[in-house]
Structures are given as structure tokens and as C-alpha cells.
């Protein structure tokens, strides 16, 4: 979403304070908040239903919820929706794995070797200035309209933030930790597996998560422009044939996938960075 760099956000020791309102009793407020968290979506759905019943808009523009549900069930049971889903997710994970692999390798290399950093980093900064979405037309011309171009776009969208995160992760390791390893004459390989990898992991994982969200956006955009399957293509087809129900289902599914990927990754992040967080506490 931003310019591709992963900046470790640290806040000064602070606590949220109720500023302009007197502090309410915590527990009660929390309960109310839980209630409201489900309240506003309910209001939204009820409002949508009423709007679709009001007759102010044609049903093609404000699709009634029951029509949406019917379309969803039809497209799910006839296998079209699952096909689009597997198509999109397959591309996403394929491109993501390639990109993350390249990113981790290059980023770590730049982190441990001053030479590699000097040769590669400036080129990286140039590439960072080119938003992936803006590269779609050029990549289509180079790689054609098949599967390759989507894999390349996703890989590109992944590799840059991951490489920078890996780089910053390694660079951010306190000098003293490496000095300790050297004083104790730890072999280079052990240093790498026991100091560098675990110490840079939290930053790297954060970068991997940002990259996943960004490549999902790039893939949806690419599928809108050039694809014969996938959620993006389904939405684009819905647009061309004026099937707003399909478009809306696509939007909801896109959001759900983004949400699930992010939540899943956060769970993974907690699991992987247990050690470093315990130390902070």
C-alpha cells in the first residue's frame, strides 16, 4: 500500500488515554463495544435490504440480499465460483512463493554482505519507485496475456518488500549480538542459523505479511485487466454483462480472502516470534 518499505514502527512508552472524554468504566464500555461491533454491520444489512425494497433504485443497481444469496449458491454449486477461487489462490501462492524466495535470498545477502549491498541496493531503490500496478501494461506486452504475466506481477509485488524487510531485519541486529557470537568463536553457519535468522525473523515476517496483502491487490487488478478465470475476471465479466450481483459477490469474497490471509499470517507471526516477544516483556 505504501512505497514498499517496511519501517519498524516503534512507539514511545505510552498508554491510550481518554483525552477529551472522562474515562468510562472499562468493562462496561468493552461490552458495549462488542455489541456495537455487530450492531453496525446489522444496521448496514438491514439498511441495504430496506433500500432494495424501497423501489428507489432498480434491483439491478441495489441487488436485494436474497438475490445475492441465490446467485452465490448457484455459482458455488455449479462449480464456477470454486474454479475462480482456486484459479486466483493458485496464482497468488505460486507467485508469492517465487517472489518471497527471491526476496529473502537477495535481502539476506544484502544484509550480510557489504559488497552485495553496494551492488544491489541502489537498483532496488530504483525498482521501488515503479508501482507494480503501473507495470501491468508493460509486463503484458513482454510476457503476453497467459498465466506467466500474473505470476511475474505477483512475484514482483512480493519480492521487493520482502527483500527490503529481510535486509532491514538483518541490518537491525544489534552489533553486540554478533560480537558475542564472534567472541565465542561460533562458526559462520551456526551464527547464521542461531543468531541472524531468529533475530531478523520478526521484521521479515512483518514484511512477508505486507507483501501478501499487496500482491493480493495486484493480482485482483491484473485479473481485472487480463485473465480468463479468477475472482477479478469474474467481477470484470459481471461488469461487462451488467451483473451487479456477481460483482458484489466478488467484492465480498475478495475482502474475505484479504482478511483471512492477514489474520492467518498474524497468527503465524505470533507463533514464530514468540521468543523475541517474550524477551521484550
Amino acid at each position: 500500500m505504501d512505497d514498499g518499505s517496511v519501517i519498524l514502527k516503534t512507539r514511545p512508552v505510552s498508554e491510550p488515554v481518554a483525552l477529551l472524554a472522562p474515562p468510562a468504566p472499562e468493562r462496561k464500555a468493552w461490552k458495549r463495544q462488542r455489541l456495537a461491533a455487530v450492531l453496525s454491520p446489522i444496521i448496514l444489512i438491514v439498511g441495504w435490504t430496506l433500500l432494495s425494497r424501497s423501489g428507489w433504485f432498480p434491483a439491478e443497481i441495489v441487488v436485494p440480499p436474497e438475490v445475492l444469496w441465490k446467485t452465490f449458491v448457484t455459482y458455488w454449486s455449479n462449480g464456477q465460483l470454486p474454479d475462480h477461487l482456486t484459479g486466483s489462490l493458485g496464482r497468488l501462492f505460486g507467485g508469492y512463493l517465487i517472489g518471497a524466495g527471491i526476496g529473502i535470498a537477495l535481502g539476506t545477502l544484502m544484509g550480510v554482505s557489504k559488497q552485495a549491498e553496494a551492488y544491489v541496493l541502489p537498483g532496488f531503490h530504483i525498482m521501488r519507485q515503479l508501482p507494480t500496478v503501473a507495470l501491468i501494461p508493460a509486463f503484458i506486452m513482454i510476457f503476453g496475456v497467459g498465466e506467466t504475466v500474473k505470476l511475474v506481477l505477483v512475484a514482483k509485488a512480493t519480492a521487493l518488500p520482502v527483500a527490503l524487510a529481510a535486509f532491514q531485519g538483518v541490518k537491525g541486529i544489534p552489533r553486540t549480538w554478533l560480537d558475542v557470537a564472534r567472541i565465542h568463536r561460533i562458526p559462520a553457519l551456526t551464527q547464521f542459523t542461531h543468531v541472524i535468522v531468529p533475530a531478523s525473523l520478526p521484521v521479515l515476517v512483518q514484511g512477508l505479511r505486507t507483501a501478501l496483502a499487496r500482491s493480493w491487490m495486484v493480482l485482483v487488478a491484473a485479473e481485472l485487466l487480463v485473465a480468463d478465470s479468477g475472482i477479478g475476471q469474474m467481477m470484470e465479466w459481471g461488469r461487462q454483462t451488467f451483473r451487479l450481483d456477481l460483482v458484489l459477490i466478488g467484492v465480498v469474497i475478495t475482502g474475505l480472502i484479504g482478511f483471512t490471509l492477514d489474520k492467518g499470517f498474524r497468527a503465524l507471526e505470533r507463533l514464530l516470534t514468540r521468543g523475541s516477544r517474550r524477551q521484550e516483556a
Binding site: 458495549r32 463495544q33 456495537a36 461491533a37 455487530v38 450492531l39 453496525s40 454491520p41 444496521i43 448496514l44 500496478v133 496483502a213 493480493w216 491487490m217 485482483v220 487488478a221 481485472l224 477479478g232 467481477m235 470484470e236 459481471g238 461488469r239 460483482v247 466478488g250 467484492v251 465480498v252 475478495t254 475482502g255 474475505l256 484479504g258 482478511f259 492477514d262
Partner: peptide, 20 residues
């Protein structure tokens, strides 16, 4: 309390996904 959940939900969809 009212707006935050909707904001969070709307934000889950990649921006360009809203184009159609």
C-alpha cells in the same frame, strides 16, 4: 463504535477490486 467496524470491513477489499 459505530463506524470503526464498517471502516475495517470496507478496508479489507483491495482498493482496485472496487473498480467493477
Amino acid at each position: 463504535v459505530l463506524v470503526n467496524p464498517i471502516y475495517q470491513a470496507v478496508r479489507q477489499v483491495p482498493l482496485l477490486g472496487y473498480i467493477p
